[in-house]
Simulated assay, not measured.
Amino acid sequence: MSETTFPRRDSDGRVIRLTELLAWVAVGLLIGFVVLLLIDGLSSLLRLGRFGQLSGWLAGILPVWLFVEEFRAWHSVAGRVGAALVSGVLAVVLGFAAALAVSIALPPLGSGAIGAAISAFLYGALWYTGIRWLADRGVPR
């Protein structure tokens, strides 16, 4: 286990605590959203488009990167593809539903960011609990 990285990981590269996984998701979403705000603001200043029209879903890039690394780290667990698919479908459906619900009041930047946040947090929680449940069953790959 490495104490110098965040989130901390075990010797196989797996994030060791759900709180750290979700904290990293929050940091990744925040960084992604700030970068989107800057890009959208700059493009609107250059009259390349109206502010708020970029897709807020792009804020989820860093959390997706973390989830890909997590998926790779659990290569020895049978059913990891199923856990990822079930978690992903549920997370994306609920994220899209939330984004659609707020799209009346918010531009794509805001509604997409809300959808990305809900999807990322939900996926993280479902994946973390689901993959450990599968690993505890001891079914080798």
Rank of each mutant, 00 (worst) to 15 (best):
S2A: 07
S2Q: 12
E3Q: 10
T4M: 03
T4F: 15
T4N: 03
F6E: 00
P7Y: 07
R8H: 12
D10R: 01
S11H: 12
D12K: 11
D12A: 07
R14K: 05
I16L: 04
I16D: 05
I16S: 08
I16F: 14
L18M: 08
T19S: 12
E20K: 10
L21W: 09
A23G: 05
A23H: 10
W24N: 02
V25I: 12
V25N: 09
V27R: 03
G28H: 00
L29P: 11
L29N: 00
L29Y: 00
V34G: 04
V35D: 09
V35G: 04
V35H: 08
V35F: 10
L36Y: 14
L36Q: 02
L37V: 15
I39S: 05
L42M: 08
L42V: 11
L42E: 07
S43C: 07
S44E: 02
S44V: 14
L45E: 10
L46D: 00
L46C: 01
R47V: 14
G52W: 12
S55F: 13
G56H: 10
W57T: 10
W57E: 01
L58P: 02
L58Y: 14
A59N: 09
G60K: 07
I61G: 04
V64Q: 01
W65M: 03
L66A: 08
L66W: 08
L66Y: 06
F67S: 01
V68I: 12
V68Q: 03
F71V: 03
F71S: 01
R72F: 07
A73H: 14
W74Q: 04
H75N: 08
S76P: 10
S76F: 04
A78M: 11
V81H: 10
V81N: 06
G82D: 05
V86K: 05
V86D: 02
A91L: 09
A91W: 15
V92T: 11
V92L: 08
G95N: 06
G95H: 01
A98W: 15
A98F: 15
A99G: 06
A99L: 09
L100R: 07
L100G: 06
A101Y: 15
V102G: 07
S103G: 04
S103T: 13
S103F: 03
P107H: 10
P108Y: 03
L109G: 00
L109T: 08
G110F: 13
G110D: 04
S111I: 15
I114G: 01
G115M: 11
A116Y: 09
A117W: 11
I118Y: 05
I118P: 15
S119F: 10
A120L: 09
A120H: 14
L122A: 01
Y123I: 08
Y123H: 11
L126N: 08
W127G: 00
W127C: 01
T129W: 14
R132F: 10
R132E: 03
R132W: 15
W133Q: 05
R137D: 00
R137V: 02
G138N: 12
G138A: 09
P140D: 13
